[in-house]
Design a protein around this nucleic acid. Structure first.
Length: 414
RNA sequence: GGACAGGUGGGUGAGUUGGCCGAAACCACACCCCUGCUAAGGGUGCAACGUCCAAAAGGCGUUCGAGGGUUCGAAUCCCUCCCUGUCCGCCA
């Protein structure tokens, strides 16, 4: 959520920044008008409430002293209906404002480049050079034919399309990767947490998935509960409605979880293979910092994810997302894309974002800074998407005979 | 899932014949003083959010699990929901 006061006081700046994200200015204007109207109505309401409170107090005193209270009672009854009338207006405005404010995306950081969509993202750097094959590298589903590693058909039988079953070496590799990633992150100072995969509405509001993106989530029938689309949701919300000690920041956490996404907007995309599934494993990094720390921690998270890929020998590149491609809650995002020789292209395997105080304001995560309560900054990043890492290893480490080598660092985990 | 008991500030916890309670006391924490040697004594401050004020101080409003209701007035009464504890049932 944006700072309403900022919209009130520095409207032009907010518009200017949100132009990068293609946000309708009329909506912002409406938001401002509404917030100012609410402020005005509150200013009308509060003196009336004060009067009601003061006279009600008098009422008690008069009654005790045996004074005549019928006149006072009449005044109070009349004032009561006035209060009720304006209070209704205020509540309605509050609800409208809240509903509107919750669907406005975060403002991009100044460092975010302009752009329409993913084609305008800016490559920052490449890490490791893709291996030169002396045969034509296969895509992961073709390698699989010989190895019997991923059972797409039976995944569909059990559930539906975009589900799959890992078998044999693939299942073991998946498990090894999770352990390796968690250990790696832990060695970088991230504390491991294990969190629920089913969360409530408030939690999803806190990180911004709701109310706008309900269609992307699997909902538990008959309950106000949802399957998490990423561990970012429960881990960030760990500190929802809390005021943290400044000395405890930054909080650096890592969590493994399964993730569940409807992929509602992805019809026809990546239908083949294991790139885009309804259920996938991910090891996530989540940090909670002071505003002063967040930029440095962002770099730390990015470095962690990138070096994790490097340690696995996987060539990748850093991509700064442009304004048009930036997610709803992010003020800044760098994607890591891994080289897939079978597909002959880079594909997203990690996404590190700073949401600054956007989630913190929604989730009311604050810290005490010399007697003042300030909003924290929250950051999240994958390190890494496990299924895609599995694919990347299959494609990058494939041999001509269809076998797959195991990266050195993973051997002790297998 | 059933029965009973409860949900109050960072913690424990008082408050339940509605008004003097946004809230005693204790602990924790912060600052100050005293003392002087390792163990204590005294004082002050200490819920959140919003709003007014240039700011501080302070004033006002809202909030005692959430939402509604009764009332001039509700932490206190009524209703619904959520959660926690205990016992029972079920179960990895």
């Amino acid at each position: 959520m944006l700072d309403i006061k900022l919209i009130q006081n520095d409207f032009d700046t907010v518009c200017e920044k949100l132009r990068k994200k293609k946000v309708d200015e009329a909506l912002l204007e409406q938001l401002r008008t509404l917030s100012l109207e609410l402020k005005k109505q509150r200013a009308l309401l509060e003196p009336l409430q004060a009067e009601q409170n003061a006279k009600s107090k008098l009422f008690g005193i008069y009654a005790k002293e045996g004074k005549n209270i019928s006149e006072l009672k009449e005044e109070l009854s009349q004032n009561k209906s006035k209060v009720a009338f304006i209070n209704d207006i205020v509540k309605e405005l509050e609800e409208k404002l809240e509903a509107m404010a919750l669907v406005v995306p975060n403002m991009p950081d100044d460092s975010v480049p302009d752009g329409e969509d993913e084609n305008d993202n800016v490559e920052i750097r490449k890490v490791l050079t893709p291996r030169v094959f002396n045969f034509t590298p296969k895509e992961h589903w073709d390698i699989d034919i010989k190895q019997n590693l991923i059972d797409f058909e039976r995944g569909v039988k059990l559930s539906k399309s975009r589900f799959s079953v890992l078998k044999n070496e693939a299942a073991r590799l998946e498990r090894a990767l999770i352990n390796y990633m968690l250990d790696f992150n832990r060695s970088r100072g991230f504390h491991e947490v294990a969190v629920p995969y089913i969360v409530n509405r408030e939690t999803l509001m806190g990180t911004g998935q709701l109310p706008k993106f309900e269609d992307d989530l699997f909902k538990i029938e008959g309950e106000e509960l949802f399957l998490i689309p990423t561990a970012e949701v429960p881990v960030t919300n760990l500190y929802r409605d809390e005021i943290l000690n400044k000395e405890d920041l930054p909080l650096k956490m890592t969590a493994y979880s399964a993730c569940f996404r409807k992929e509602a907007g992805s019809a026809g995309k990546d239908t083949r293979g294991m790139i885009r599934q309804h259920q996938f494993d991910k090891v996530e990094l989540v940090c909670i910092t002071t505003p002063e720390q967040s930029e440095a921690v962002f770099e730390e998270m990015l470095t962690c994810a990138s070096e994790l890929l490097t340690s696995l020998g996987l060539p990748h590149r850093h991509l700064m997302l442009c304004g048009g491609d930036l997610g709803f809650g992010a003020s800044k995002t760098v994607d890591l894309e891994v080289w897939l020789p079978g597909q002959n292209r880079y594909r997203e395997i990690s996404s590190v974002s700073n949401t600054q105080d956007f989630q913190a304001r929604r989730a009311k995560i604050r810290f005490r800074d010399d007697k003042k309560n300030r909003l924290v900054h929250t950051l999240n990043g994958s390190s890494l998407a496990v299924g895609r890492t599995l694919i990347a290893i299959m494609e990058n480490y494939q041999n001509e005979d269809g076998s797959i080598s195991i990266p050195e660092v993973l051997k002790k985990y297998m």
